[in-house]
Design a protein around this nucleic acid. Sequence first.
DNA 1: CCAAAAGTGTTCTGACTACACCCATGA
DNA 2: TCATGGGTGTAGTCAGAACACTTTTGG
Lengths: 239, 239
Amino acid sequence: MKFSKHIAQLTLDCVIFGFHHKKLKLILSKLKLAKEIYALPGGFILQEEDIEDAAKRILFERTGIQDLYLEEFGTFGRANRISDEDFQLFSGIAGDLYPDVEPPINENNQKMRIVSIGYYALVDFEKVIPQKIDLDESCDWYDIKELPNMIFDHQEMAHKGLQVLRENLDKKLLFNNLLPETFTMKNVQELYETVYDKPFPANNFQKKMLDLQILERLDKKYTGAKSKAPYLYRLKPRT
Amino acid sequence: MKFSKHIAQLTLDCVIFGFHHKKLKLILSKLKLAKEIYALPGGFILQEEDIEDAAKRILFERTGIQDLYLEEFGTFGRANRISDEDFQLFSGIAGDLYPDVEPPINENNQKMRIVSIGYYALVDFEKVIPQKIDLDESCDWYDIKELPNMIFDHQEMAHKGLQVLRENLDKKLLFNNLLPETFTMKNVQELYETVYDKPFPANNFQKKMLDLQILERLDKKYTGAKSKAPYLYRLKPRT
DNA sequence: CCAAAAGTGTTCTGACTACACCCATGA
DNA sequence: TCATGGGTGTAGTCAGAACACTTTTGG
């Protein structure tokens, strides 16, 4: 066999961000290993598959959502990105899921590097129950501020993903799965404050959002709170 | 042999931009093929090599410059990024340069996709004579506005590289090899006008550049032209 | 009427634009 | 002294930030 069903030394890992009520989380798998260690959802890429389609496939496997907004944020290819310890831990189980892929060990029993492409996506974590796959002991949402011990350079990938998410969040809002159908300006503000981890003054924030021309104002929302009822908004249908 | 000396289905291609006197060029190889077709300088990645080091190695091979500023700008992995025609053209010669890498054909004689990582770099093209390698009939600078027929999706890669170069050119200037040791403000302005392919008003441009606090004003330059002598500048030593 | 939260208006600043103007230089 | 190109100054516009203020709501 010259070529396996999957590309041998290239994987794809996804930083799936979930937002809800001032919390920013991401999906991690707890791996079925002796040591407690976590990984970004990822996998190998099929030979006939566009890389972006592979990312969509992995995202669908884990979230059940078909058409998610996603973006590539970088390639991770340091020669030593897989430590010896992680390699030994992981190589035992990877073959179960990808029997076609040769374990990354050369004829001298040295580990070989696997390059990973990073993608991120955005969802509302109240709407998505992370699905585990065979390699996972469990799969769940973890707060970005309290990330557990992660395998390979996955922690670095998660941070790079967040950094790219923060660039032009305005444009990304257009596609999102982060907010419900209708929402208040406060909801949007909390989303921004959570992603950027800093406060935004409400009046300036509102002006800026409205100036973007992407929100449509609807009726007011009467919650029964003893305060003024906020307007509801929805994303303008894209032209 | 389970693994070759190079990673099998992953390559790296470099968009090496060269600037001089209102011209923006990039290095292309004319391949030793029946058809006249050009390629970005690129190559496979060694198993033990950081990807960024592989990019530096390729850049050094082609330009003779060791420590070039470079940046990754994306991954190119469409399943059909290599057309049947390009595949047939190229597969004949690739084996000469990389005898260790299996030709990307599966057992059913179907071509397999190779994923490529894009890097770009910046130089002054008057200072660099592009070096050809075995696969090349020639290797030279080509104007970005008059790109010849390019193999695979290399044209798309070149344009994406330019797009990323345009983002934050200010910061990239700090590292560059684009300008001589000392230069006039007009030189810098022409660089910007060439990269962005649009004019900048001279007075506002000067103010903006000086506000960046990265230029140090030196003595005037007396060229013998019958006009006021411009100041010379140099990049402030980085702290 | 009051507290709480929503929403608006006004001013200030700093970046960028456009326009007009002055200065040095060699012919 | 004049044309040429280098360099500076000022006013207008626009997005953000900071501040104070008014409005709506249910108790």
